[in-house]
Write a protein that binds this DNA or RNA. Sequence first.
RNA 1: CGGGGUAUAGCGUAGUCCGGUCAUCGCGCCUGCUUUGGGAGCAGGAGGUCGCAGGUUCAAAUCCUGCUACCCCGACCA
Length: 491
Amino acid sequence: MAKDFSTRAENYAQWYNDLVIKADLAENSAVRGCMVIKPYGYAIWEKIQATLDKKFKDTGHVNAYFPLFIPKSFFSKEASHVEGFAKECAVVTHYRLMANPNGKGVVVDPEAKLEEELIVRPTSETIIWDTYRTWIKSYRDLPLLINQWANVVRWEMRTRLFLRTAEFLWQEGHTAHATKEEAIQEAERMLDVYADFAENWLAIPVIKGIKSPNERFAGAIETYCIEALMQDGKALQAGTSHFLGQNFAKAFDVKFLSKENKLDYVWATSWGVSTRLMGALIMAHSDDNGLVLPPKLAPIQVVIVPIYKNNEQLALISETANKIKTALQNKGISVKYDDRDTFKPGWKFSEYEFKGVPVRIAIGPRDLENGTVEVARRDTLEKAIYQVTDIENKIGNLLEMIQKNLYHKAFAFREDNTFKADTWEEFVDIIENKGGFVLAHWDGTPETEQRIKDETKATIRAIPLNNKLESGKCIMTGRPSTQRVIFARAY
RNA sequence: CGGGGUAUAGCGUAGUCCGGUCAUCGCGCCUGCUUUGGGAGCAGGAGGUCGCAGGUUCAAAUCCUGCUACCCCGACCA
């Protein structure tokens, strides 16, 4: 992402606010760090949802919904899980308000204290596994492949718009399996689903890998991740998939009778992506003119802007514009014809650039005479004159080209910002001065990773799957290592 | 929770040190006319508890005290 978007917009918050604003209810610190997603931004989220949801269903999953509130006691059942989340939870302690005895407003009724506090879910493992216990009795009940679209709350000390908001929207898949192998396979399969989505829809290249123990999800045996590089050189974890082993099954006593009539604990996975993906989308592709959306996720793929001097001209242009609109729509392309007379063409051009609309078609009197239109693409800002003939196929191809170009651009950026470091000095220099991914040897111990983090703020983002083996020396300790891992500063 | 900073119209701001036509300017908004192929021009207009509460003073956006909120850095964080 460019440093700011203000080059042309003195009030650049304008476009940003069109997408999302931070909740700002004065006098109410309780909503600090939450977000309001405005319609245009939400339309992007809906696209993300729809695409992923279809992929989940294609891989045999179904949706369900579990409670927002989780009894506090559930959290004490899985020790490492509670350690990972207990510090950052919103807790419900009362269930009633009453008029303030002093006459001013309302206060919490002290009489209405809950016997057991409720935690606003920071993630749903506990309540889901408590439920699964009653659903799973036999190997015939397995595998259980369930996904939930929901909001979760994490009381982060410091929030960042899109990337770490106190409340965020996400999906969380929670599956139960009869065997360890099948569960691992599921975790890896869902990682592939995420990677495919990131690369082919978001147009963001990602590294598939596993997390080091330090970065592993609380309660997981193995955490798989897709890791992306943003334009400012920082890494962003775009999605995770966890192999949970039998940890949650044991904590919540979820057992099944196998074919062999043996009682055993089930094997579990969980996987999720969130509204953070929208942050990734913004930071991976945007430029000084605003958002740049890949065609597959753009709520509006093509906008048509008429250029006219009077109503007669507008009527003529509209005729052509609507024909083009219909032709494109018949090809499954989402089109907006913006014939508002309250804004001028130049204004509209800028507005749709802020919003990242991939293709803009301008039609004026000149075009009517020549049977042409002016086509501008958002990714390169290039303009070209197209003959109207067969316009739907030309635009269709252009959209595909833009989708690919965005990916290639992001891929090239990542290549240019991936470095190898063999000495500590080199490593520090790259982290401090260049940013990006740094491939370096590491002795495999959590202590060393922690030391590196303490000194440079860089962490191991991923140990790539199918990593090339290569013997070397740990950049920190000099101890032997068998492979390079990816270090970076991260969001 | 530590360190630093900020709070003035919908947004962004000047003014605060040195109290006295100071409530400034830009964007946005409204009206009218002319415009319309890259955020139009001119004219007119609306809009402010100067974060909140006290205090000092003839006089406070400005000085003092307390509070609150936000931002940045750190700690923290799938």
